[in-house]
Amino acid sequence: MCLPGCSGRHYWFSGASEEAQSIETLAWILFAGAGVIWLIVMALAFFAMRSSGRSNTEKSARRMILWGGFAFPTVVLAALLGTGLLTLKSIVAERSDLTLEVEGEQWWWRVGYPGGVVTANEVRLPRGRTAEILLTADDVIHSFWAPALGGKIDMIPGRENRLTLTPTTVGNWGGLCAEYCGGAHAQMRFNVIVMEPDAFDAWLEDEAAPAQPESGPGLEAFLGEGCGACHTIRGTEAQGLVGPDLTHFGARTSLGAGILALDRDTLRHWITHTDTLKPGVKMPAYPDIPTEELEDMIDYLLSLT
């Protein structure tokens, strides 16, 4: 049902999780019902204007109000309400196989897995297991939404919200912030990568390991420019908590919170002209880094897989 030119990464009806499938079923019931009711009302209106004053008894018109305007909607709405409530109950899982913590920041995502693994802007989930995602925020309100996998839940300072997802289809799906969170709200994206359970377990194990390599000219440049004040690269002196954890940066699929492809040129541009790519971003631009140092740093960051 995806229109031409559409990648479908954010398509509600991708059916990539059990929850999304439940909502999709509900949606098609609603769409079909709404279409039929709209046509009936329009036909009645057309008929009413055409047949005005002809062969209509007052009694039948008044009965139409009671049956069409009162009784019919009551029954239909009661049925819909019941369906909606049961669907809601069914898509909120009581138990989960895996718990993630995702924190919304202006304008990126901090993602935590069991065992202290922290990454950013990429949520990896195993297919067929129910993941419980705990959602928090510290600065302003954000909202976690991966349309292909289901509904959104807000991330509100002072609260911990809970979303459960059970992915069914392996793939790289899109995610975005759905609640206006100031400035670059439009550029607060992430990727949801659904993996086979074995691959996921292996990935999580790799992710838990410290950075490889743990030294080199690139790292020195990184530390020399003070990047470590904001970013963490586990296994090195860089232990900043303000910005995204970069321990396995090179293995990510995107840059700048899901908005850019991760390649050499883009990364160079990002470091030197950050706010032209993302206005208002907290990370300062480094336009004056010596070229050699910059290239070393890029080599190093891309090697962090």
Partner: peptide, 18 residues
């Protein structure tokens, strides 16, 4: 009366706060 019955419906369905 109808609206009150509608309001009561969620109490039939949900047994837990979340």
């Amino acid at each position: 009366a109808i609206a009150i019955c509608f309001t009561a419906a969620p109490a039939l369905v949900f047994a837990r706060c979340w």
